[in-house]
Amino acid sequence: MADNQRPACVSCNTHRLCGGRGLLTLKQGAWASNPLAIQVLGICSALAVTNRLENSLVMGGALIFVCVGSNLLVSLLRKRTPHRIRMITEVAIIATFVIVFDQFLKAFYWDMSKQLGPYVGLIITNCIVMGRAEAFALQNPPILSIVDGVANGLGYAVVLAIIGFFRELFGTGEIFGRQVLSGQWYTPNQIMILAPGAFFALGIVIGVFNAIKGPEPEEKKP
């Protein structure tokens, strides 16, 4: 970890823990290049599971776990992995963590596992996890990679929670299954729970993020 060639951390001015870039990495991942709202990666699951706030939170947790785990392992193995087979190594590592999480859900939260259906398994093809392993963990020391995993997982989870909150609120008038908007004056708008609502909600969230971040050319990369 003692990597003295790197510049010192902007926040703590030391080389401890993060190799000098801890806070910067955290900020980058969670806000400035938020995987979901700014880079528009991994939107499949963001659309599919956000019909309830509870599901969104579990999915966010799953992604944090997988992202941290795979980042750590990829980073630990980065000097031993031959360049040619790095992709398949990354996929195998990610799949391992996804299986662990899936088995955990099946064992302790069967109902949740049923509700999320195939979307837990689909974390394997979630571009965020793969992207962070490829773009970050391959070049950086383990602890910094964990920070990056937490940051990106958190950035994803927060946006997911925002979307889940509004979809459940407007779609059913409930939060966590408890009535919030009273049925007397609010008619639940079913469309927010159904597929089109997911697209509208994510489109609006990305638009709002763009508006807050100020005028910057749109990124259209996969």
Partner: peptide
């Protein structure tokens, strides 16, 4: 299209309309 919505966001909203049509 309003500036913040250009590109991906409007594509998302249009997909929503498409999904509604498929319903």
């Amino acid at each position: 299209i309003p500036e913040p919505f250009q590109g991906v966001p409007i594509a998302m909203v249009v997909t929503g309309v498409l999904a509604m049509a498929f319903m």
